Simulated scan of single mutants.
Amino acid sequence: MLLAIIASGCGKDDATEVILAKNVFALSPVADSKISGNVSFVKYEDGRTEVILQINNSSEDIHPAFIYANSLAEGGPVALTLAPIECDCEESITVVSKWDNGSPVSYEDLINFDGHLKIHQNKDHLEIVIAQGNIGANAQ
Rank of each mutant, 00 (worst) to 15 (best):
I128E: 14
I119F: 08
S71F: 08
D109S: 12
V24N: 07
S106P: 06
N70I: 03
A139F: 06
L82H: 04
D14Y: 03
N112P: 00
S106G: 03
A7E: 12
G102N: 10
A137C: 00
T16M: 07
S92N: 12
F113V: 14
E86D: 13
T16A: 13
S97G: 13
V42S: 00
S103N: 14
P64Y: 04
L80H: 03
A83W: 01
P84G: 09
V105Q: 10
G102W: 10
A65D: 06
F113L: 14
V39Y: 05
A4E: 09
K98E: 11
Q132N: 12
I85Y: 05
L53T: 10
L72H: 02
V42A: 02
S33Q: 08
E45W: 02
I35A: 06
D61L: 02
A65G: 14
S36W: 06
K22N: 06
E86V: 04
Q132W: 04
A83N: 02
I52Y: 01
N112C: 09
A137G: 05
L2E: 09
K118R: 15
G133K: 07
C87F: 15
I93K: 01
A83L: 04
N57P: 00
G11F: 03
D46T: 11
V39W: 06
A65Y: 08
A137M: 09
Y107W: 07
F41N: 08
I128G: 01
N70Y: 13
R48C: 02
V96G: 05
V51I: 15
V24A: 09
D14Q: 02
V42T: 13
E90L: 08
I93V: 15
A137S: 14
A69E: 08
E91K: 13
S58T: 08
C89P: 05
L20T: 02
N112L: 12
G11I: 04
Y68A: 04
A15K: 10
T49Y: 06
I135P: 01
Y68E: 02
V42G: 00
E127T: 07
A26T: 15
I128T: 15
A15G: 01
H125S: 08
V18Y: 07
L82S: 03
Y44P: 09
A31R: 15
I62D: 10
V39D: 02
W99R: 01
K118P: 06
I135F: 06
V105K: 08
I55G: 01
G75W: 08
A139S: 15
D14V: 06
P104K: 08
Y44T: 06
I6P: 01
D124E: 12
L80K: 03
C89A: 14
G76C: 04
K43V: 00
N112R: 11
H63T: 08
C10F: 11
H120D: 00
G76H: 06
G11V: 03
V129R: 11
E74T: 15
E108L: 13
L82W: 04
Q140P: 02
A21T: 00
P29S: 14
F41D: 04
R48N: 04
K118M: 14
K12E: 09
S106F: 06
I35N: 00
V39S: 05
N134P: 07
S58K: 09
V105C: 11
E74N: 11
